[in-house]
C-alpha cells in the first residue's frame, strides 16, 4: 500500500462525484454534522450503530457488515472513499474494519470534512437513498490485521512493538480518558508494559491533513518505532489506534501491524493484568508470572 493508493484529495474526489464505481461514506464522531452538509452523494455511517456489534463488545458480524455495504452501495469492484470530522479519526476505524473484512479498495479523503469545508467544495444536505446493492461482497476475515488481548500480552512479553497512541496524560496514568469522554473508562489508568507512547494526532498537521511520508518517518524514528518490525497499536477503544494503523500499514507500508480494538478499556479493566504508570515504557511483561493463554506467541 502507498500514499498514492490509500489517500485521495479534494480535487480527486470532486472530479469523480456521481461516479457509480465510487461509494463515498462520511463517518463522524458527531454524526449529526452530516445533516449540516456533506459531500454530494455521501452516505452517513454511524459508528455507534454501524461499526460495532449492537450487543457484545465486538466488531459487527459478517452479516451486519455485508448489510451495511449493501445499504451504502459497495459492490465487488467499488472504490470506497471515507471521510469525516475530527481529522478522520472514525473514518480510519471504518477503513480498518472494512479491510479486516476483506475489502480491497478503501481510501481516505485527506483532511476529511475539515479540508473539504476549508476548500469550499460542494455540499449537499439531502441524504442519498439506500443503494441496496444485491451484489455486495461477502466479508472475508483477515485476522492478521487485528490483535486480541492475548496477542498484546504475548507482544509485551516478547518485545514486539506496542504503540500506545493516546495522549501522554493517559499513557502516564494521570487520566483515564481525555476530558469529554466519560463513558469510555477503564478500571485502572496506565499503559501496557513495554508500550511506547506515540500520540495519534502527531501524525496530523494543523490543517487536518496527514503529514508527509518524510515527516512521518522522522517522527516515528524519533519515537523509536521500527518500520521493519511487527507492531500492535492501541488506544482507549480502538479508534485512534486505527488512525495510526492506517499511517503505518497503508501509508508507510508496514506489513505486520495490527490494531488492538479492545485497547485500554479492556486491558485496564482485566483482573491481575500488569499495568505501568509514568512516562517510561517499563519492563517487559513477565510471562512466567501469569498463567494466561496466548503468552507463547
Amino acid at each position: 500500500m502507498s500514499r498514492e493508493r490509500a489517500l485521495v484529495d479534494g480535487d480527486w474526489l470532486e472530479a469523480r462525484l456521481g461516479d457509480p464505481g465510487l461509494a463515498i461514506l462520511e463517518v463522524d464522531e458527531r454524526p449529526l454534522v452530516y445533516n449540516l452538509g456533506h459531500v454530494p452523494g455521501a452516505h452517513c455511517v454511524d459508528w455507534r450503530r454501524d461499526l460495532q456489534d449492537p450487543v457484545a463488545r465486538d466488531v459487527p458480524s459478517p452479516e451486519a457488515i455485508r448489510a451495511l455495504w449493501r445499504r451504502v452501495g459497495v459492490g465487488p469492484r467499488t472504490t470506497v472513499v471515507l471521510y469525516g470530522d475530527m481529522s478522520n479519526w472514525y473514518p480510519c476505524f471504518a477503513l480498518w474494519l472494512f479491510e479486516l473484512y476483506g475489502l480491497d479498495d478503501v481510501r481516505l479523503l485527506d483532511g476529511g470534512r475539515q479540508a473539504w469545508l476549508a476548500e469550499r467544495r460542494p455540499l449537499a444536505t439531502d441524504a442519498p437513498p439506500p443503494a441496496d446493492r444485491a451484489d455486495a461482497p461477502q466479508p472475508r476475515l483477515r485476522p492478521e490485521l487485528r490483535a486480541h488481548w492475548p496477542d498484546v500480552a504475548g507482544a509485551a512479553a516478547h518485545g514486539v512493538q506496542l504503540l500506545d497512541v493516546r495522549t501522554p496524560g493517559e499513557y502516564r496514568g494521570e487520566l483515564l480518558a481525555e476530558p469529554g469522554y466519560p463513558q469510555e473508562l477503564a478500571q485502572r489508568p496506565g499503559h501496557v508494559p513495554g508500550a511506547r507512547n506515540l500520540p495519534w494526532d502527531a501524525c496530523v498537521a494543523p490543517d487536518g491533513r496527514l503529514r508527509s511520508d518524510a515527516e512521518l518517518r522522522a517522527l516515528l524514528d524519533e519515537r523509536g518505532v521500527r518500520l521493519d518490525a511487527p507492531a500492535i497499536t492501541y488506544c482507549r477503544i480502538g479508534e485512534r489506534s486505527a488512525h495510526t494503523w492506517f499511517v503505518l500499514h497503508e501509508l508507510l507500508g508496514m506489513s505486520e501491524v495490527r490494531n488492538y480494538d479492545g485497547s485500554w478499556t479492556e486491558w485496564g479493566s482485566m483482573v491481575g493484568m500488569p499495568v505501568v504508570l509514568g512516562p517510561d515504557p517499563g519492563e517487559p511483561l513477565d510471562a512466567a508470572s501469569l498463567s494466561l493463554p496466548g503468552l507463547t506467541r
Binding site: R30, V33, W89, R113, Q114, G208
Partner: peptide
C-alpha cells in the same frame, strides 16, 4: 461553536 468543531478538527483553529 459548531464551526470551530467542524473546521478546527483535532488540533483546533489558529
Amino acid at each position: 461553536l459548531v464551526d470551530v468543531y467542524e473546521r478546527g478538527g483535532r488540533h483546533g483553529l489558529d
